[in-house]
Amino acid sequence: MNQPPLVKINRVGKRFGSGPLVLDGVELAVQRGEFVSFIGPSGCGKSTLLRLIAGLTEASSGELVIDGMTPENARELMFFVFQDANLLPWRRVADNVELPLLLRGDPTVRRQERVAHMLEVVGLAAAAQRFPWQLSGGMRMRVSIARALSVAPQILLLDEPFGALDEMTRDKLNEDLLAIRARDPFTGFFVTHSVTEAVYLSTRIVVLSANPGRIAQVIEVPFAYPRPAELRETPEFLQLLAKTSRALRAVRNN
């Protein structure tokens, strides 16, 4: 761990306008290759923290350093997966996945190859010519992930991507996300309400308390990748699940 962290969050505070403090003194260093989940009660600022890393909003105090750059300058390294799939309704699935490559100015042939590859990875090759309204919520989210990964970002920020999906779909997408990450590695930041999801996906879980949002506890997840789906039924996993739930409860009762 002599490497400098890929993402360094230095005593970051955030308030919107003259409103109350949303985040206070957040301190976190994340190494390349980690997968960090933010979990906490609503209003703890976990989405705001994600948006701060993305440079979609600015810190009121403290600073964020991403690979030696400000978040805004580091955008090229990052991509954001939004809460709802956030697809352009007038573009077909393939054209939605292509968009970031198109905006980046990649040549047509490269774009087509990359789109085909990404659709293959998320298992949507057959749906390439459909429009977003013709897809289920889970499929839409797959498109969104394919789009995000099309530019092979070093850092992927996911804002409760599976929150609106049923549990079965969510479990499947969790497994797929890990499989994708094994092929195209990225450093992940993941906002969620689901403890299971956080434990299954992450290398570290950051539990935040609300009003103002502070880091209450950081839980290390020791399981090695690849993580099989059955990991979720092992005693060690359930133990960590219980530990995380306890931490969350403690935060809520404060």
Binding site: A54, L56, E76, F80, N86, L88, L103
Partner: peptide
């Protein structure tokens, strides 16, 4: 849509690209 605008921001889209690929179709 604000979220779509942020998507274009994340893509470092130019103003012209935003008009062409987001605002006009929208």
């Amino acid at each position: 849509d604000r979220n779509l605008q942020e998507l274009f921001l994340m893509c470092k889209a130019t103003r012209g690209q935003e008009v062409r690929y987001l605002r006009i179709p929208g």
